[in-house]
Computed example of a mutant assay.
Amino acid sequence: MAYSYEPHHFEEFEKGQTFHSPGRTITETDVVMHAATTGDWNELHTNREHARERDFGERIVHGPMTFVQAIGMVMRIGILERTAYAFLGMNYMDLPNPVRIGDTVSVEIEVAETKDLESRDDVGLVVFDTEMTTQDDTVVFQGDLKFFVLRTGEASVEP
C-alpha cells in the first residue's frame, strides 16, 4: 500500500477517493504529554492501579487524544499539506472502542463530499469520512472531517 501522497488542491478531490495513513504506535509518553497539555489527569488514563479495577482492566487513551491523533494522521497522509485552509468541524464523531497504550493505529479517509462555495472563490469544501483502526482492525474513531481546501493557484505546494 502506498503512503506517499502529493498535496491536493480542491479540484483534485473526487467523491469516493480513499487515502491511507501509515501506522503509529501510541506510547506512554503520548498519554503523559496529552495529560500535561490538557490538564486531564483522569486516573483511568494515568493510574495503573485504579484503571486495573475498571471495565477495561488497564489504562486507556483519552477520548479527545484519540480524536487529535486521528486529525494528525489525516495531516500525515500529505494530501492537505499547504492546501488545508481551515478545519471546520464535524457533524459526528464516534469513539466505539478504546485505544490502549501500545496499540498501533492508522486511518483511512474517503472523500464523502466536495462542494463549490458561492461566497468564496479561493477555497472549496471537502468532507472526509474518517476511520481509525488498531492493528487488529478494531475501529476506535469514526467521523466526518470538514475542511476548506485551497483551489489551484491559491497556494504553492512547493517546499
Rank of each mutant, 00 (worst) to 15 (best):
Y3G: 06
Y3V: 12
S4K: 14
Y5N: 09
E6M: 04
F10R: 07
F13G: 08
G16L: 01
T18N: 09
H20V: 11
H20P: 00
S21H: 07
P22Q: 14
P22I: 11
P22F: 00
G23P: 06
R24E: 11
R24I: 02
R24T: 02
T25P: 01
T25F: 02
I26Q: 02
T27N: 02
T27H: 03
E28H: 10
V31M: 09
V31I: 13
V32F: 14
M33T: 09
H34R: 00
H34V: 03
A35H: 08
A36W: 01
T37L: 15
G39P: 09
G39Q: 07
D40F: 06
N42D: 12
E43M: 13
L44R: 15
T46D: 05
T46C: 08
A51G: 06
F56H: 12
R59F: 07
I60M: 07
H62P: 08
H62T: 05
H62F: 06
H62A: 10
M65C: 11
T66R: 08
F67V: 14
F67Y: 14
V74M: 12
I77C: 12
R82W: 06
T83G: 01
A84Y: 04
Y85S: 14
A86F: 03
A86E: 02
G89A: 11
M90V: 12
M90Y: 07
M93Y: 01
L95W: 12
L95F: 15
P96N: 08
N97F: 03
V99M: 12
R100H: 15
R100T: 04
D103M: 08
D103C: 09
D103L: 06
T104D: 03
V105H: 07
V107S: 07
E108M: 11
I109T: 04
E110R: 15
E110P: 06
V111P: 05
A112V: 01
T114C: 04
K115P: 00
D116M: 01
L117C: 00
L117K: 09
L117Q: 04
S119T: 13
S119W: 02
R120K: 14
D122W: 03
V123N: 01
V123P: 02
G124E: 02
L125I: 08
V126C: 03
F128R: 09
E131D: 04
M132P: 05
T134W: 03
T134I: 02
D136P: 00
D136C: 04
V140C: 10
Q142L: 13
L145V: 10
K146N: 11
K146M: 12
K146A: 05
F147Y: 13
L150M: 13
L150K: 07
T152M: 02
T152C: 02
A155M: 09
A155H: 14
S156W: 08
S156C: 06
V157P: 07
E158L: 08
